[in-house]
Design a protein around this nucleic acid. Structure first.
Lengths: 232, 232
DNA sequence: CATATTAATTGATAATTATCAAGCGAAAGT
DNA sequence: ACTTTCGCTTGATAATTATCAATTAATATG
């Protein structure tokens, strides 16, 4: 593990207030690994042996049932994943695979739980993180149950636009087949839905999206902070 | 607030390990109220002034967007709701209404946050609770994205059967129109889906469900602990 | 650079799910 | 007991979404 890795990990809200003693204790058993793309890091149902931390690259969290598969979320640096399973010492509910070449820190779950038991501030930091995650999933579920696929796509574009700086031209942040899966639709449907949004001033060329009529798209998408805001 | 209320609240894992001092501090500003059915207790988007605790009755958590509405979950005694909003001091993501005559404790959010800051054990109890909630929503999302409405209904019946003791005859635990909303379908569709499950040995009479061919239903529903188990 | 592979698109069709309208039936109120 | 209300059901139809097959575009590989 490099010194810069340590520094990066320290950045995260989760470890910010940790005493140096406890932080060292956590890092003692931790190790860093570089993975090529498309490597399955964890499989749902397995015991949660490590808390994972993404230093660089990107990780897809997905789930399967009865031969079907769906992308649940994408984890980007710098953040952890499967914190809830680690803390509860419960099996993973989702599988994870690298989307790109990724640098991942693996922290033994038992160490995390030990520091959690010993350090109230760490426990409080975990609360903040979990509450955030919980609210994100609630928002995702609201979107799934209240919006059609075209509406989900429109709102996704608006969120993506905002994150990219708010300008009329921006890039999709992952390939369309996974975007389709994240939005709960098939790739074919996404392709047609993107065409359908042409009526509202959306033009797509490969990964590049241009929103020519912002008002029109806004009026159709009806974004709502209680579904679309990352903050709240 | 009655002495028995205090006792009931103490039962909950969240408050179990709290010192008497901290528990009293929490209860000092709390008050209990009895509500008739169909009363809106909180509205999504409002600031989270109180942590709510259901002593008896039942509460529906629901959300709206663009004139549509969906039931997200049902809270039954003894448990809290909107813990995440309280802790993050963020607006509610869901509205809540009583389903039946209900007895609810309201604990000022600022008091909860104060004890949370002062008491590491309380923070740890909140972690356990939030991690549990998080995992429940993840399971719900997996179910929504991976299963058709007929499959969701079949698995709901199996879960309900298990909870009712596992026998072949049991009762639905809420009215069909809300069940439909919880399962992400229309009441009309639920009605037809219940008929569709006759092929798999399910008979419904009002709220009473009879599963005559368990093997057949199991084979169709394909329940999975990573979606259907309340525990894990 | 040519070729192999994979992703994206398109068309045709089927399955799923929702909407609208009407009727039935149980429960609540008078 | 009567009526009113509301939830549930059923039928007909429409909208949404998925599947299958084929083609095109883009990317990777030797």
């Amino acid at each position: 593990m490099l010194a810069s890795d340590n520094h990066d990990i320290r950045q995260l809200g989760l470890f910010e207030k940790l005493s140096d003693t406890h932080f060292s204790a956590l890092m003692r058993g931790a190790y860093v690994q570089n993975f090529p793309p498309q490597i399955e890091l964890i499989t749902e149902g397995e015991p949660s042996d490590f808390l994972h931390f993404v230093l660089s690259g990107a990780v897809d969290l997905f789930s399967s049932w009865n031969g079907r598969e769906t992308s649940m979320a994408t984890v980007r640096p710098l953040s952890t994943f499967i914190l809830a399973a680690t803390i509860r010492n419960a099996p993973y509910l989702m599988s994870a695979r690298t989307l790109e070449k990724s640098r991942i820190v693996l922290i033994p779950s038992q160490d995390v739980r030990a520091i959690f038991d010993a350090d109230g501030d760490f426990a409080r930091a975990i609360v903040a993180e979990l509450a955030q995650c919980y609210r994100s999933v609630i928002k995702a579920q609201k979107e799934l149950k209240l919006r059609t696929s075209l509406e989900r796509l429109a709102n996704y574009l608006l969120r993506q636009q905002k994150q990219a700086g708010g300008g009329p031209v921006f890039e999709l942040d992952f390939e369309k087949r996974r975007l389709a899966s994240v939005l709960g639709m098939t790739p074919e449907n996404l392709s047609r839905a993107l065409k359908g949004l042409q009526h509202y001033g959306v033009a797509v060329d490969g990964m590049r999206v241009t929103i020519s009529d912002q008002t029109d798209l806004d009026r159709f998408a009806k974004p709502n902070p209680l579904i679309d805001d990352f903050r709240t």
